[in-house]
Simulated scan of single mutants.
Amino acid sequence: MLRKLSGDPDCKNGTCPTLWATEDAGSYVVQGYVVTDPERLAQLDLPEGESAVLVPAAVLEGYFRAQR
């Protein structure tokens, strides 16, 4: 089960970039926009089975603000 930690404050449709914690709080799941730019993907040099997503800064900032 996932627990929502922070979402895009500008979200209008409920399925926007979001930060989630796993049930055991040992990992996080990041929901965001798939990185498709070949230049950015080349810089990341992702191994098989990994992907990259863009997440608005406000999603992570909201989470860290809540932790203070």
Rank of each mutant, 00 (worst) to 15 (best):
T15A: 08
E23C: 02
V30H: 00
S27H: 12
A58D: 04
V29Q: 07
D37P: 06
E61N: 13
G62P: 02
P38K: 13
C16Y: 08
E61P: 00
V53D: 05
E39V: 14
V35Y: 00
E23W: 04
L60W: 04
E39K: 09
R3L: 10
M1R: 02
R65Q: 15
Y28N: 07
A25D: 14
S27A: 13
Q43P: 03
W20E: 04
D10C: 06
E50V: 07
D10Q: 13
E48F: 15
A21K: 13
F64Y: 13
G26F: 05
S51R: 05
K12Y: 10
V29T: 13
A42N: 11
K4V: 15
A25S: 11
T22F: 12
P47D: 11
A52T: 06
V30P: 00
P56C: 01
A42K: 12
G32L: 01
G7P: 01
P56R: 00
D8E: 15
A52E: 06
T22E: 12
L44Q: 01
T36P: 01
D8F: 09
V53P: 00
L46A: 04
Q31M: 08
A42H: 08
S27E: 11
G32I: 02
C11I: 05
T36Y: 02
V35E: 03
N13D: 12
K12F: 09
Q67E: 14
T22N: 07
A21S: 15
V34L: 08
L5G: 13
V34Q: 04
V55D: 03
L5F: 14
G7N: 05
C16N: 07
K12P: 05
M1E: 11
P9Y: 01
R68H: 12
S27Q: 15
E39T: 13
A52L: 06
P38I: 10
G32M: 01
D10E: 12
K4G: 14
G14Y: 13
G26M: 12
G7A: 11
Q67L: 15
P56I: 04
E39L: 10
T36I: 10
A52W: 03
A66H: 10
D24P: 03
C11G: 14
V29E: 15
Q67N: 08
L60R: 00
A25G: 07
V35D: 01
L41P: 00
A21Q: 09
T15L: 06
A52M: 05
E48I: 06
A58C: 03
D45Q: 09
A42G: 07
